[in-house]
């Protein structure tokens, strides 16, 4: 529980910063595809561990590799596919899940797919806290160091191209950071619910803040409040934490509609 709290708080920073970029760049369905297809990596890792006894095959490591590969695929499609981009992204989304589910069903012994799909705080081990902290640091350094670039790219990609910014590589970098964030959040919310954590706090903060920076800070604060509250309720009511956190975040988002009509 203590580990889960720390991971939840740390990950709030990552999803506040990256979620804000996802929302203003309007790529939440790309984030969805990256998140869902990471099940392929989780399934493959558990399969290798169960069938061949490879203890190095950690599900989180598998998720990381699959999410990064899928970020690359999604980036390639959204950059170079001339037509039906959304259909191909949708295919990456479900093919990744299908592959993951098949791996899980071929894995000997009992594997609880639910815990990966919807999150399970008990999955959070001590070393994962360090992983989350390292990913946080990477996300913060890049997300804040390249703030002006990501802002220009998200606001007007064509203009950024004309200004000579490396639009394609910056766009790929952003999707890779989404992949890292998704992996951080898998243990908290699970891959199905992760998109809500990326988008809802940022969207809520965006309704009341006047800058992208403010949106990131606001989204992080929303996470800092809702994630521990969800974990606390989950512990007391014996309900899964992921769905509780997502519902809390959704309530905050609805609240921002009532409160924050921007002038």
């Amino acid at each position: 529980m203590r580990n889960a709290m720390i991971v939840g708080l740390l990950s709030s920073v990552a999803f506040g910063v990256i979620g804000s970029y996802v929302v203003v760049r309007r790529v939440s369905y790309l984030a969805g595809a990256i998140a869902h297809s990471s099940l392929l990596g989780i399934g493959a890792a558990l399969f290798m561990r169960g069938r061949f006894g490879w203890t190095a095959a950690d599900p989180l490591l598998g998720a990381l590799i699959a999410a990064l590969l899928s970020a690359f695929a999604v980036w390639w499609v959204s950059t170079y596919a001339k037509e039906r981009e959304d259909a191909i992204i949708g295919a990456i989304w479900s093919v990744g899940m299908a592959g993951g589910l098949l791996f899980l069903s071929c894995t000997p012994g009992y594997v609880d797919a639910m815990s990966y799909l919807f999150g399970d705080v008990l999955l959070v081990g001590g070393w994962q806290m360090w992983l989350v902290a390292a990913l946080d640091l990477a996300v913060l350094l890049l997300g804040i160091g390249l703030y002006n670039r990501f802002q220009a790219l998200s606001f007007d990609e064509e203009f950024a191209t004309v200004r000579g910014l490396p639009v394609k590589s910056t766009s790929l970098l952003l999707l890779c950071m989404v992949a890292l964030t998704v992996v951080v959040l898998v243990s908290v919310a699970g891959i199905v619910l992760v998109v809500a954590l990326l988008t809802l706090p940022a969207a809520a903060a965006g309704r009341i803040s006047s800058s992208l920076k403010g949106m990131m800070i606001g989204a992080t604060l929303i996470g800092v409040v809702t994630v521990p509250s969800g974990l606390f309720l989950s512990y007391n009511w014996d309900l899964p934490a992921g769905p509780l956190i997502v519902l809390l975040v959704a309530i905050v988002y609805l609240g921002s509609w009532l409160k924050g009509r921007k002038a």
């Binding site: 760049r25 002006n148 802002q151 007007d156 490396p166 965006g206 006047s210």
Partner: peptide, 21 residues
């Protein structure tokens, strides 16, 4: 074609013209 809720000030938009390789 930007996000119609993009939180950005007029000055920040103009400053994007100063970005470059």
């Amino acid at each position: 074609r930007h996000d119609h809720l993009f939180p950005v000030t007029v000055l920040e938009v103009v400053m994007m013209g100063r970005m470059g390789a």
